[in-house]
Design a protein around this nucleic acid. Structure first.
Length: 846
RNA sequence: GCCCAAGUGGCGGAAUGGUAGACGCAGGGGAUUCAAAAUCCCCCGCUGGUGACAGCGUGCCGGUUCGAGUCCGGCCUUGGGUACCA
């Protein structure tokens, strides 16, 4: 008997697959196509367990679809632009390009041993000029269709390094290198007009039946459609009225001030006054993230301007407030402190009045420190309401007020979206150059398509902060494509989200001379199954949905590909325990898993000290809890790694990597190999044993198929453990055992393809197990003749009876009531009710 | 702050509103062996009881239901996102 030798088996079958070319995708009519895609990786250089889990899940689907007769497209590439390459260049020298391409080579080296069914011939990186040149062509097409424009927007500005900072580079309101307090600064930047499609992007979510509900909900909330009232406050001094937008016009009686954004034209007009300038400088401190703005201390400045309440004529003060965003609504609001916590905090701080406009039905306590904000569906009691409301829900009140104000000609009902246009300009080198030229005479001039790609220059340095393209005269200075006079290239590059917003379309024709090839796009699109981390639930997926629409408008995708991902699955992270002790200086010391011995739930170091175990932490280099997939593959083989990342946790949840779990997975695979090896084809067994084994086999086919189709990989694997146990113990004859073992190999094949090929070959299977048609379950073999029904009395389980599976309700009820335990509990009384759920349960209500 | 999830034995987790704890890990007991490795078999939520059994038990509080881990309302904790990390 030979032992399971993963290294030998895996090398051999990977070579066999490659020789047969079975994963190279070509258009084939007459076979249903299936496009499975995992979110492509950033080439950090190190493959981690999260990647292994992501690609293994995709591979299970791809291999299952292959076995069920589909023409499968399963490509891989790299999302290769971005900050880490520039950071590496700054930290260790070298060039982002060298760093990136070396990392790509390393990662491909690390991925190949996993035995993924990938079509490597389609691979590309987004930093290939062949890719980003086509992206520049898309940009020019979008520009032509009015889908891109320029406007001012704020960025994080480091006043010491004189550079723009990414949100990630702002730590606690300070620049990560200089430590200077970050300011918000306006720059002219390029924007995609995604807000034009807000309503469509929202509405189309309804059709995405195979997307997780939570992702659709997050996107819907992000787009944030709201109906409100837009109206103007007349100024007491006769100046330009202040237009505000509110989603709660019903609380207009409770207005105690009007607030404007620090970027509002009125605020800007007041610049020059020392007190105003001091306040605005204060209000512009800190980063640009919504979190920073929302959690910052609320600051206000009384402009001295008064406005008239549109209904009462009462005067209200106008304040500049740092929490009001110019991007949303009109950049001006009225504050209603009684029913908005933020407004209340503001009014308490600056001693502005608080006016209750409604109370709960059974409580008329005035608002103190906590604003009264009931759900919009809850009925409340109104105080002297201007539209005549007495008792009504918030929703009813909003609609009634909008109608009232419209009838009076005081304002209009308006629909607004939270979604802002997508700013794509980045003041960085390692990205796709924006293909336009700034000419003094002609203004902004698009580069000619025949001059694409606008290639990044190689001769750049990162010894000073800022964008090296800005200080590269020979690259920057070019003649104007329109008039030919001296002009300057745009030195901003594109957001890396642009790169990842259309790569799925490029995979359908990765070497085409245009962004896509319509015939290939028509054949392969849509992505039938997209798989990636839930951290991309909003931005990446929304941008990709926008891009598919924009590409369709420009003729690069068919109408049918406007929603590019038919089904989406969001998977969890791979985590690992952290082993922590305290160093002499009191700071934590993190220990690598291989330095720790686990015994009785305790983590012991080599010197005998005990380390604290922090379970399920995200794998992170700084915490020393990273498990390198290569070590696992070298030690146990790729199939063990694949089996383990799928086995323990549901795919959408985080999985904790444990050494014992990997060991167990490996043992199990060895067991399967041994059981298959020991089958004696000549052995005979009883007909009953044969049938029993084949019943188990059909149940396994059914359950595993269901598991794979519904992303219940962990459940499918549990069934495979059960089926393996049944096969190991079975006294069935050799023929039945051989049949069962071959089906086992096939069912395991999506997860452990190498082992399956080895078992398949050993048992004399024809051709490759990978290509063998997926087995079908025989319905007749799935149901047992007898079922065991639990009997509950008042909801508590008291007994059970065994009955034929199709016995009718009355018969079952009679049997249940005749049961000893039931008679004893009822003690002569008649049951109030007996509920029989066929095949499930009997509940007797005493 | 706001939006979205998750929370079940010592651990990872299973369970179309219908027997809570499948399957695996760890632990305990046994078989095999000169011994070990490997392998195989049995036990394994908590409390009480020799035992049959009884009571309790799915983050916390409340509700709907014949019946709730599952549905509804309110909290707590952890994780993801928060528009320039990818």
């Amino acid at each position: 008997m030979s032992r399971y030798n993963a290294a030998e088996i895996e090398a051999r079958w990977q070579e066999a697959w490659e020789k047969a070319g079975i994963f190279t995708a070509e258009r084939k009519e007459g076979k249903p196509k299936y496009y499975v895609l995992e979110m492509f990786p950033y080439p950090s250089g190190k493959l981690h367990m999260g990647h292994v889990r992501n690609y293994t899940m995709g591979d299970v689907i791809a291999r299952y679809k292959l076995a069920t007769g589909h023409n499968v497209l399963h490509p891989m590439g790299f999302d290769a632009f971005g900050m880490p390459a520039e950071n590496a260049a700054m930290a260790i020298g070298g060039h982002p390009k060298t760093w990136t391409y070396n990392n790509i080579d390393d990662m491909v080296e690390q991925m190949k041993p996993l035995g993924l069914s990938l079509d490597w011939s389609r691979m590309f990186a987004t930093c290939d000029p062949e890719y980003y040149g086509q992206q520049q062509a898309l940009f020019l097409d979008f520009l032509d269709k009015g889908l891109v424009y320029r406007k001012n927007a704020v960025v994080n500005w480091d006043p010491v390094d004189m550079t723009v900072l990414a949100n990630e580079q702002v730590e606690g309101g300070r620049g990560w290198r200089s430590g200077a307090l970050v300011e918000r600064k306006e720059l002219t930047q390029w924007f995609f007009k995604i807000s034009d499609m807000a309503d469509e992007l929202l509405g189309a979510l309804d059709g995405l039946d195979n997307w997780p509900a939570k992702v659709k909900l997050m996107q819907a909330n992000w787009i944030g459609k709201s109906r409100g009232l837009q109206f103007a406050f007349e100024r007491a001094d006769g100046g330009e009225p202040i237009t505000v937008y509110t989603t709660r016009p019903d609380t207009l009686n409770g207005a105690s001030f009007v607030g404007i954004s620090p970027d509002h034209p009125i605020a800007k007009a007041m610049e020059g006054d020392a007190a105003v300038d001091a306040f605005l400088a204060d209000a512009r401190k800190g980063g640009t993230t919504e979190e920073a703005i929302e959690t910052a201390e609320k600051l206000g400045f009384d402009t001295g301007i008064k406005v008239k309440h549109p209904l009462t004529g009462e005067e209200l003060p106008v304040w500049i407030a740092n929490f009001i965003l110019m991007d949303y609504g009109t950049g001006a609001i009225f504050g209603c402190p009684a029913h908005d916590q933020r407004d209340l905090d503001f009014c308490r701080k600056y001693d502005l009045p608080v006016i209750d406009t409604f109370f709960a039905l059974d409580d008329d306590t005035p608002v103190g420190k906590v604003a009264f904000v009931p759900a919009k569906s809850e009925k409340v009691r109104w105080v002297n309401h201007f539209a005549g409301l007495e008792e009504a829900t918030g929703e009813e009140a909003i609609n009634a007020t909008i109608d009232f104000m419209e009838a009076k000609g005081l304002g209009e009902g308006v629909t607004k979206f939270r979604l802002r246009d997508w700013g794509l300009s980045r003041q960085r080198y390692w990205g796709c150059p924006i293909p336009v030229v700034h000419c003094e005479a002609c203004g902004v001039v698009p580069e000619k398509k025949e001059n694409l790609p606008v290639v990044l220059p190689d001769d750049v340095t990162f010894d000073v902060p800022g964008n090296p393209l800005d200080r590269h005269p020979t690259w920057r200075d070019v003649p104007c494509p329109s008039c030919g006079k001296a002009a300057k290239r745009e030195t901003d590059t594109m957001d890396t989200f642009v790169d990842s917003s259309w790569y799925f379309a490029r995979f359908t024709a990765p070497r085409a001379e245009t962004p896509t090839n319509m015939e290939d796009a028509k054949y392969w699109m849509n992505v039938d199954q997209y798989i990636g981390g839930v951290e991309h639930a909003i931005l990446h997926l929304l941008y990709a949905r926008f891009f598919a629409r924009a590409m369709q408008i420009c003729g690069h995708l068919p109408e049918s590909a406007k929603e590019p991902f038919d089904a989406l699955f969001t998977q969890g992270m791979v985590t690992h325990a952290i082993y922590k002790t305290e160093g002499a200086d009191g700071r934590p010391v993190y220990h690598y898993p291989e330095e720790v011995t686990l015994k009785d739930g305790k983590a012991l170091l080599e010197d005998g000290r005990e380390a604290e175990i922090v379970p399920s932490a995200k794998m992170s280099k700084s915490k020393n809890n990273v498990v390198n997939p290569l070590h696992i593959i070298e030690g146990y083989g790729a199939d063990t790694a694949r089996w383990f990342v799928l086995s323990d946790s549901p795919p959408e949840r985080d999985v904790e990597w444990t050494a014992s779990g990997a060991e167990a997975a490996h043992k199990h695979l060895g067991r399967v190999y041994r059981i298959a090896s020991e089958i004696d084809a000549q052995a005979t067994g009883s007909a009953a044993d044969d049938t029993a084994l084949l019943r188990e086999m059909h149940k396994a086919i059914h359950d595993v198929t269901m598991g794979v189709e519904s992303f219940g990989f962990n459940a499918a694997i549990a069934k495979l453990y059960g089926f393996t146990n049944a096969l190991g113990k079975s006294k069935a004859g050799g023929a039945a055992k051989r049949q069962a073992a071959m089906v086992l190999a096939q069912l395991m094949s999506p997860m452990t393809p190498h082992l399956s090929e080895a078992v398949w070959e050993k048992l004399g299977g024809e051709g490759l197990c990978t290509l063998a048609p997926w087995p079908k379950a025989d319905e007749a073999m799935l149901v047992d003749d007898e079922v065991i029904l639990p009997i509950q009395i008042n909801g508590k389980r008291r007994a059970e009876i065994s009955v034929p599976k199709d016995m009718d309700k009355a018969e079952v009820e009679k049997l249940a009531l005749a049961h000893e335990a039931v008679i004893k509990t009822l003690d002569g009384a008649t049951p109030k009710k007996v509920i029989v759920v066929p095949g499930r349960i009997v509940n007797v209500v005493a």
